[in-house]
Design a binder for these strands. Structure first.
Lengths: 211, 211
DNA sequence: AATCTTATCACGCTATAAGGGTGATTTGCT
DNA sequence: AGCAAATCACCCTTATAGCGTGATAAGATT
């Protein structure tokens, strides 16, 4: 019997049998990794995961029943130290960000070759965050602000503070200007963004990445 | 004379002469890239950049005078299509996120070898977002929510809406509950977070990644 | 020189929103 | 049976939000 004790233990949760078995084969072919278990759905996995206690879980982002995205917090509460790598076919922005805020550590595309798969697993083990070029691009782009904002520097500054939940008078204090000045700026902001409330101003500004 | 016309044009802005010249040498050694210009400071670069119009700029994140971070929007307004790769020595979280929101496309550590440098340049040209393992980790971690939030699901939901600038009555409408219910939840949230205002609640929650 | 933009401040007005106190009910989970 | 979570009720006071209208000074732009 081969000794798997000092290998990195991996679990796969993926409903497509071909991919599940393909990945298992490719990963087991590496001397450093061992697939301890694989499941076709989250429900079954949750019941049995603690017995395996893998260091890394490859989790399909879209699964019937409990989705991969929703499975992340459930898995994390059972195995807090386990790294979760999402398996994706195409890049769905919304699912990517939901997975991230739920606690995923990285992404692996389903058409990856052996090297990419093992590299990614090794990278999460080393504390990294492996992802495809496309995912990295989406993530980085989410930080970029719009350089064509209609708002002036001061207006942007004030709207950012509005979005932090500050009252107009608190903003005035913090910026060392009069309350009337802040009111005036906010009036101009509303007019430029064509809105009539804090809520709408914040939404507009965030949607357009003005703030 | 060597024909550089169909090579990818690169500019370097970096105050350390050794690194500037080292990178220039390494990049020029590749048949695909050509360093058209290099500057030791942003001020000089801004005046001359448009004459070169490089596709990629390697920009030191920390520079005397105008910093690399602050240079990004200025460069982008001169050359909107140019990709900016930040040069870093160590990973300063704040500078990383500021660079990103200002429009940087990726990161390159100063101790990179030729392959990493040319790979990164090629990757931004291809629309990607190259970065070191550490930077990727920092970026991904910034999305992760705290799984030990003292707030219940409903409380988290409501606080998220408060952070969107919604009034209590708007939240009540959107959640199909009574205003009194929302007030009650917010009271509980304030009590759990030990705060007495929207502003403080939002700050607390964001700092601890409860929302 | 004339104009525009930006940031600043003033005053008046009305509705409501925010924060706090205290307490009750119901549902679901353990 | 007990507890946490979510719901709703009624009381209270002060501050806030949003709107209208207008002024002023400094800087940039044309």
């Amino acid at each position: 019997m081969i000794n798997n004790d000092n290998k990195i233990q991996v679990t796969i949760i993926e409903d497509d049998k071909t991919i599940r078995e393909g990945f298992t084969y490719l990963i087991n072919a590496s001397p450093k990794f061992n697939v301890v278990s694989s499941y076709s759905n989250v429900e079954e996995a949750l019941g049995k995961l603690q017995a395996n206690a893998p260091q890394v879980i490859l989790l399909d982002i879209e699964l019937p029943g409990i989705s991969g995205v929703d499975a992340i917090p459930k898995i994390k509460s059972l195995l807090p130290k386990t790294h979760i790598l999402m398996l994706t076919v195409y890049d769905n922005e919304e699912l990517v960000f939901k997975s991230l805020s739920n606690g995923a550590s990285g992404y692996l595309t389903k058409n990856s070759n052996t090297e990419k798969i093992t590299d990614a697993i090794q990278e999460v083990i080393d504390g990294g965050a492996p992802m495809s070029m496309n995912i990295a691009k989406i993530v980085i782009k989410s930080f970029h602000k719009n350089r064509n904002s209609p708002l002036t520097k001061r207006e942007t500054e004030i709207l950012e503070q509005v979005a932090e939940g500050k009252s107009r008078s608190k903003i005035a204090k913090d910026l060392f200007v009069d309350l009337e000045t802040v009111k005036s700026h906010i009036k101009n902001i509303y007019s430029k963004l064509n809105v009539h409330s804090r809520e709408d101003a914040i939404r507009q500004a965030k949607d357009n990445k003005y703030i």
